[in-house]
Simulated assay, not measured.
Amino acid sequence: MPNGSLDSWLHSSANGDERLQLKSLSFVQRLNAAIDIACALDYLHNHCQAPIIYCDLKPSNVLLDEDMVAHVGDFGLARILSEDFNYSQSQSNSLTTRGTIGYVAPEYGTGAITSTSGDVYSYGIVLLEMLTGKRPSDDMFENNLSLHQFAKMALPERVMEIIDHGLLSEEIEIIGHSENPNNIRSKMQEALISLVEIGVSCSHESPKERMEMKDVVIEMQKVKGFYLRC
């Protein structure tokens, strides 16, 4: 893809990509990419002949085209849930198909059956990474602190303190040239709080507490509509 991976944009300095050293994804670009990813997973889970579980969602598997539209690629670990789905076989597969550390659902590590809720967990982590600029494997996440907990503890009053500085600096410049900066700044903060809440909800340790992708798409579209009415 012409614009590389989402990972290369979120972590350009760490990746040493000279083309992106002075660039950062704006808030709207990140929001659009997050919606594109949610729609892709919703399609796989709910609109195929049989549900497809992606199993390895992470920024390096999300590619951006010339229009900065996000595409989910690399289906090497994907699983199809057919009518003759064998639960014992799926449980066995889940032990060898764990995805990528930091993004894989915690229940897979205990031999849980592969499910769509595992993709939801990965989506929640990716969304939080897009907002905070921090990988789930960041050195700061130790002593039982995770990206999920880091974001959850900031809700709602301290959310702006954990947001990626690159995202904020880009938006501050845009807000500074607007006719009603206070209104846009307020709406952006409210939108960011809503997005962090979605990310936290998707990345709950318990699969039963996670949202479904069809509901994630609806909520993400609501946030976009709210913000673009600035």
Rank of each mutant, 00 (worst) to 15 (best):
D138M: 05
D139I: 11
I101W: 00
R185W: 11
D119G: 10
V223T: 02
P136L: 06
G111V: 11
S5M: 10
I198Q: 01
H165L: 14
G73D: 12
T110W: 13
I80K: 10
D119Y: 09
S186P: 04
I80F: 07
I125G: 04
K187N: 12
M140F: 13
K222L: 14
D164Q: 08
R30G: 06
R135Q: 11
T97I: 13
S178H: 10
N86F: 01
I174M: 12
L145C: 14
M188S: 02
E171G: 03
L64K: 07
I101Q: 01
G99K: 08
H204N: 15
I80V: 15
S201A: 15
N32L: 10
A105R: 05
S206C: 03
N93M: 15
T110M: 15
S26H: 07
K152N: 14
K152Q: 14
S13P: 00
H11P: 08
S186Q: 15
I162E: 04
F150Q: 07
K224P: 03
V216N: 07
A151Q: 01
M211G: 01
G99P: 11
S12I: 00
D36C: 12
K134G: 06
R185L: 14
I184S: 00
R19P: 01
G109S: 13
I163T: 07
G199I: 10
D84F: 04
D215I: 09
H45L: 10
S90D: 12
G16K: 10
D84S: 13
I184G: 00
C55A: 13
V62D: 08
L10N: 00
S8V: 09
L128Y: 08
D36E: 09
V223N: 00
N46S: 13
E142L: 13
L20V: 02
F75A: 10
R210F: 08
N86G: 01
T132H: 03
P51M: 11
S92Y: 09
M153V: 05
D36A: 09
R30A: 04
E219C: 12
I125N: 04
V223P: 00
G225H: 11
I53P: 02
V216M: 10
D67Q: 14
K152H: 13
S26T: 15
S26K: 09
L147S: 07
Y123H: 08
S94W: 04
I80D: 00
L31C: 04
G111E: 09
N3M: 08
S60N: 14
L22T: 13
S24I: 06
Y103G: 02
C202K: 08
V104C: 12
A112L: 12
N61Y: 04
E83D: 14
Q221G: 08
S146L: 10
G111Y: 12
N3C: 09
H177M: 15
P2W: 02
